[in-house]
Every structure is written in structure tokens, then in C-alpha cells.
């Protein structure tokens, strides 16, 4: 049996009295590309953010390569790990955001270099060449010294992806990375993700692009009201949904 890259066990998350994740179980192997679909409020983005500890969670465990993320048991009590330790664990995963979140006071290259220098303790020159390599890979080799404000939305998102991937993460998390883009810019970003998938990158994508999820995923997870409603092969999921809920969701979404 292969060791799981990611293992989520009975994940529970509350905002005040509202429970948004009500016990999610899920495993993922090295090299898998999993799309998470579902209506807004179903908990799909929250789940992604828990994996990166951008959200605290109250119950269950998340393991990456068997290592528990964010919390540890001390004398039988569940305690949050130190900020330093959490920071190290966050670097195991890379994340791309809906709003890009590039640092506006740094050039594209500097955005990519920041984590390499501060977290990976790389020398400046080395960081620069790694940054250039990855910017090249996302098709922005010529824009290394541009500021985010001088780039289009699609270009900014590609820089953001390069920033995450340059950290050499075990797993990439994509949170609705095309939702904030003008329709004509969506394609270039999806192409970058497809290329990464073809390279064997393990990826977890929250997306509204059903066509894309269908094409790129090895597996699809349908989230519904804080639990996994259905999961499986994209062909089965999209063409022969097993549950009423998924069938309904697919009808209202843009998949055609």
C-alpha cells in the first residue's frame, strides 16, 4: 500500500456556532489531481484553507506525509503548534488565491524570491535564478521586473502560481484561481495548471470551471453542506452522478 500524501480525518470546523465542516474524510496519493466542486457555502474553500492552517479547525486531523498539521497532542490535550512550526508546515503546501494576493511593493521576481530567501534561506543570486526559471515556466520570463500593478490579472495570477510552486511544495492548493479573472484571461491560467499537472504535481483545486475539472482531474470531490457528498472518477461524476444533490448542482452549473 502506498503512503498517503494527504490524509484528512474527521475534519470539523466551526465559525462561532455555525459548523461549516462536519466531519470530512479524504485521502490523496502523490501525483493525484483532485478537483473540489460544490455550491458556495458548501465548505470547499474552508477545507483547502484548513490544510494550509489559514483557518484553525476544532476537530479531526490533517496529515501530510503522515505528519499532523497545525496541532499536536500534549499530555492528551490538543494544542496548536508554535507559529514557527506552523510556518514551516505551511511551506509544505503551496497556495494560489482567488485574489492573487501579490505583494504590490515588490516586482514579480521579488514576489517569488521572498519565500526562497526568508523561508528557504537561499542566497539572493540563487533565489533570483530559481525565480527566473519559474517565471519562465509560467510564460513571464520577460516580466520579472514588472510590478504587479503593471501586469494583467492573468499575468498576476501566473506570478502568484510561480511564487507558490517555486517553494517546491509537496502539494499545490488552488482556491478558485480563475474566479476573479476576466473571461478572456482564464485560459492562460488554466494552461499553466494543466502543464503542472502533466509534470506530475500533486494538486487540490477548488474550482467553478467544470469543463476544466473534468479534463484535468484524476478524481473529483463534491462537497455538500460541510461533508463530502460524492467522490470519484470525473467521467462517472459528471456523466452519471449517483446522488440527487450532485445532479442538481451540475444542472445549475456551467458544465455542458
Amino acid at each position: 500500500m502506498t503512503k498517503n500524501l494527504l490524509e484528512i480525518q474527521a475534519l470539523r470546523k466551526r465559525y462561532g456556532s455555525v459548523e461549516v465542516l462536519k466531519g470530512v474524510d479524504c485521502t490523496m496519493q502523490q501525483g493525484e489531481v483532485i478537483s473540489i466542486i460544490g455550491s458556495s457555502g458548501s465548505g470547499k474553500t474552508t477545507m483547502l484553507r484548513c490544510i494550509n492552517m489559514l483557518e484553525d479547525f476544532q476537530g479531526g486531523r490533517i496529515l501530510i506525509d503522515g505528519e499532523p498539521i497545525g496541532y499536536e497532542e500534549r499530555n492528551g490535550v490538543r494544542v496548536r503548534k508554535s507559529e514557527k512550526e506552523i510556518a514551516r508546515q505551511r511551506a509544505l503546501t503551496g497556495m494560489a488565491f482567488q485574489q492573487f494576493n501579490l505583494f504590490p511593493h515588490m516586482t514579480a521576481a521579488s514576489n517569488v524570491m521572498l519565500g526562497l530567501i526568508k523561508v528557504k534561506k537561499m542566497a539572493r543570486d540563487e533565489a533570483r535564478s530559481v525565480a527566473e526559471k519559474w517565471l519562465e515556466r509560467v510564460g513571464l520570463g520577460q516580466r520579472a521586473d514588472h510590478y504587479p500593478g503593471q501586469l494583467s490579472g492573468g499575468q498576476q495570477q501566473r506570478v502568484a502560481i510561480a511564487r507558490a510552486i517555486a517553494m517546491n511544495p509537496r502539494l499545490m492548493l488552488f482556491d478558485e484561481v480563475t474566479s476573479a479573472l476576466d473571461p478572456e484571461l482564464v485560459g492562460e491560467v488554466l494552461q499553466v495548471i494543466k502543464d503542472l499537472a502533466a509534470d506530475g504535481m500533486s494538486m487540490l483545486l477548488v474550482t467553478h470551471e467544470m469543463r476544466f475539472a473534468f479534463e484535468v482531474s484524476s478524481r473529483v470531490i463534491f462537497m455538500n453542506q460541510g461533508v463530502i457528498g460524492e467522490e470519484g472518477d470525473p467521467k462517472v461524476m459528471f456523466l452519471k452522478p449517483q446522488t440527487e444533490r450532485l445532479a442538481e448542482f451540475l444542472k445549475t452549473s456551467s458544465f455542458a
Binding site: K84, N101, L114
Partner: peptide, 24 residues
Amino acid sequence: GLKEAGLAIGLTPMQIRTSIVIPL
């Protein structure tokens, strides 16, 4: 979101303050 982006690449809260929040 900018602070979260810093967290996501593994910066500590103090590094985020000095490299991102304070300069901006």
C-alpha cells in the same frame, strides 16, 4: 489576503510584519 499569501509561503507572522505589512 496579503498576510495570508505570506503565511502560505511559510513566512512567520514577524517576517510578514517586516517584509510586507510595514513596508506597505
